[in-house]
């Protein structure tokens, strides 16, 4: 009797936990599916060629998001141009040059601290430092500089992970053939860690696409149509910032949902690209 009671108890305990686990995983998945379907269903009908190819016009009262799309592209380009050398350089220093263990720990701790700081604080410091102190005003350049600081830990970490997998023998081989350290890094180490650099790039682009709080006070929210160089020095909204402004300040929910649908598709695409490149490099490494 006692034995049987205990056994039913155990059975109920196990069944309950089992149920909770499946329910939780189910809730998570359903949430994602709901978000995707809801946003696409509400947004896709408003994604028209006109919306994508024009700028907002006061005359016709129509809204176009071409400037916001271009701003996003400019911002991504400008950020990556500065971010990649810095991030890869930091990673190379940590794995190839640094001999002092304390120093490595300090730099890694700093990088972790950076990745924990919320974007609104980046926005504030970016505004003080780049817009005011360096007198860049509200501009995409100021926004890009802020995003460089934000994304530095990401590129640094992915490159570092990849550098760690380069066999020590490659380096010794290069030295043995008489290569200098820089020559060795340039010809042996960097080509081997391309996967880490590319992964870092993809992750950073994803974050830049989704960023809004850090850009509101640094890049501003103008919708002017500019070329690359004028665009960089003037204020401009990216897609996410434009979504926020249209939804919160102007009540233009149709445009907001259209942008949300575009962002959702881009998020999909970024995830897919990250997956595929990961698989590609894994395959290449194993053969």
């Amino acid at each position: 009797m006692e034995m049987k009671k205990k056994r039913t108890g155990r059975f109920i305990y196990g069944a309950m936990l089992h149920f909770l686990m499946i329910a939780s995983a189910g809730i998570t998945t359903i949430l994602v599916i709901f978000m995707i379907i809801y946003v696409l269903w509400k947004g896709i009908p408003y994604v028209t060629w006109e919306l994508l190819s024009t700028k907002p016009s006061y005359l016709s009262g129509k809204i176009g998001i071409l400037p916001d799309i271009l701003n996003t592209v400019y911002l991504i380009l400008a950020t990556l141009v500065v971010l990649l050398p810095l991030g890869v350089g930091a990673a190379v220093y940590l794995t190839e040059y640094a001999k002092n263990k304390k120093m490595v720990e300090l730099i890694e701790y700093a990088a972790e601290t950076l990745s924990g700081i919320p974007s609104i604080i980046y926005g504030l410091v970016g505004m003080l430092l780049f817009c005011q102190f360096l007198n860049l005003q509200k501009s995409l350049i100021a926004g890009a500089c802020t995003l460089v600081i934000m994304n530095l830990p990401t590129v640094m970490r992915t490159t570092q992970e990849s550098l760690k997998t380069v066999p020590q023998g490659y380096r010794e081989g290069a030295f043995g053939l008489g290569a200098g350290k820089w020559h060795m890094i340039r010809t042996v180490v960097l080509p081997e860690c391309m996967d880490g650099i590319i992964t870092g790039c993809i992750l950073s682009v994803g974050r830049i696409l989704g960023e809004s709080a850090a850009l509101l006070f640094t890049a501003g929210f103008a919708h002017a149509l500019n070329g690359l160089f004028d665009g960089l020095t003037s204020s401009g909204a990216t897609l996410t910032v434009a979504l926020y402004v249209y939804a919160k300040e102007e009540g233009e929910f149709e445009v907001a949902f259209a942008i949300a649908a575009i962002l959702m598709i881009l998020t999909f695409a970024m995830n897919l690209i990250a997956d595929l490149t990961g698989k590609y490099f894994e395959k290449r490494r194993n053969t």
Partner: peptide
Amino acid sequence: VVETAVSLLAGIPSVVYGLV
């Protein structure tokens, strides 16, 4: 499937969450 869903959830911009 669930892991893909979770990484999508992580990638969705915060303003989209706000909008929904």
